[in-house]
Structure formats: C-alpha cells, structure tokens
Amino acid sequence: MNWLIEIGKAAALCVVVFTFIAISVMVMVYAERKLSAWMQARIGPRHVGPQGLLQLIADTVKLLQKENIVPRQADYLVFSTAPLIVAVAALLDYVVIPLGKVGDTVLIVRDINIGVLYFAAMASLTVIGILTGGWASNNKYSLLGGLRSAAQMVSYEIPLGLSIICVAMLASTLSTVGIVEAQRGRWFIFQAFPFGFFAFVVFIIASTAETNRVPFDLPEAESELIAGYQSEYTGMRFSLFQLGEYGELFGMSAMAVVMFLGGWSGPRPVPPLLWFFIKTYALVFVMIWVRWTYPRFRIDQLLNLSWKFLLPVGLVNILGIGAWLILLR
C-alpha cells in the first residue's frame, strides 16, 4: 500500500506545482507587459481591474475559449503532443527547486541527490517539443523556427552544463538543498573570485538562450519568421507553449538564485521564502530588462558566441575553480 500513497502524493504535488507555475507565469506576463510599456513610454494594460491587474485572468479565460485550429496538412498527433512536452518539461524542472525553509523543513518537492543534473536534463527536453511543434505545423516558417531552436538550445546546453559543473565543484554535491547550505558563509557568485562570477554570467547568458528570449529569440523572430514554431498554434495549445516558456524563465532564474545567490538565505527579519522570491524576481526583472533593451542576434553571431566565447570561458572557469580549490582552500 506504500506505493499507492506515494502515487497519491506525487499526483497532489503535481497539481500544487502546476498551479504555482500558472500563477507565477501570470505574474511574469503582467510584469513583462507593464515593464515593456514603461520602457517604451506607453501605459500598458490598464482597463481590466485596478492598474490592469486582472488583465491576465481575462487573457487566460479568452485563450481557453478560443477554437483549436489544426492546419489541414499537419501531423495531428505530433502537433497536439508538442505543446504538452514543453509544458511538462517546465513542470518537471520545479521538482528540485527549494523555495525556502519553514522551521527545519525545506520547501521542496523532492531533494534528489542529482538535483542540478536533473534540472539540466529536464530543461533539455523542452527543445523536443519546440522542434516537433515546428515540424508538425507543416509551415516553412514554423519548421525554420524549430530548426533554429534545436541548433541554439543544443549549443547553449554546453556552457550551461559547464557552469553547473563549477557550482558542483564548489559545493561538492549535486543536490540543490546541499548547494544552498554550502553557501552559508559566502554566496558562490563571490567565491573563488573572479571564477564564481564568470560562471554566474555564463549561466545567465546560456539560460536566456535556453528560454528563447531576446536577444536570443531567433526561433520565434517576429520580423522574419512570424513567431516561428508558434505561428500555427491557437487557443489552449498556444498558451501551453507560453506557459512552458515563462515557466522555464522562472525555473532558470530560480536555479541561478539557488546555485549562485545563496537560495533562500538572507538577513533575519525577512522570512526565507520571501528572500527566495525577492532574489528570483530580481533576476526575472533583469531578463525582462535585457529583452526590451537589446536587439536580436544573427544566427551566426549566436552560434559563434556559444562555441567561440562561452565554451572556452566555461572550460577556463572549471580549471580556475579547480586550481582555487586546491591552492587556496
């Protein structure tokens, strides 16, 4: 009977995590729209609710009511599975993210001993959804978007993994809770100066590319690919793609906080849970800020940045941190 309880627990936690993602995605979409409006000297959503706060609920309801259109020549089965892969990959990311500490209990779905590796593995599944969604739409723009996304995400996974290795070396564990506890004295971004900081920068750049955001949003470049892999999707399926994308954005920021910025730790009067959200949303804000400030890369510049700059920097970082661990500690 033990495993029945386990299955029940897993299902309940799934519902909790999915609700959490849906709500945080709504908050982020609202923040994105408001911030982009301020940066472009517009007002942004304003009419639904106070300061347009209910706009996102209205949008969600609207998307749920929309008709689901499937192009005639599309591969129906693959077309309808692709958004699910993206959303579920984002959902699985959240299993290892520790949100804070209440008393002695860490708020985490499951603290597994390969935490950060698991996170990288689940984040890498997103690309399958995007690639197949682009192919199944049977549209040249979608296919081009999907192929760009595959090239981009496969190449940026490597610098991402290299900076995760740096953190694993400093913490000498892969468990996310272990990593946060190893930063009790000093955050990893300040340790092994300047290598910890470089690892953080590499992680942030690579995670922006993994989430397909400007300046790395070639898979969905509006001006040339009319939103790329998403262009044939409507209604609920489109919103699942959006959910996956913003879910991944929050997941990546949360992971950067866990690995480099000390996770939930912070000065006393503010509770750990709040510290975690302050740090994560600060990083989300940086990502939004970057999105509305910089123009898009060209595809060759994008791949050169990954293979000719981030990859060597990541490797040198690993060497540097290894040397620092042996010589100075």
């Binding site: 590796l117 990288a120 593995a121 689940m122 890498s124 399958i128 690639l131 995400m153």
Partner: peptide, 26 residues
C-alpha cells in the same frame, strides 16, 4: 543508478534525438 539516469536524459533524450530529428528534417 541516478547519475546514469540523469545523463541518459541529458544526452540521449535531450541531444541525440534532437540531432537525429534535425538531420531528418534537413
């Protein structure tokens, strides 16, 4: 064998399949 499991997803499901699909689609 959790470590091998993590690597299996990262390398095979996340990268090898993508490369195969990439080649087929091109």
């Amino acid at each position: 064998a959790e470590f091998v499991a993590g690597i299996q997803v990262l390398i095979y499901a996340g990268a090898i399949t993508v490369l195969i699909l990439f080649v087929i689609m091109l």
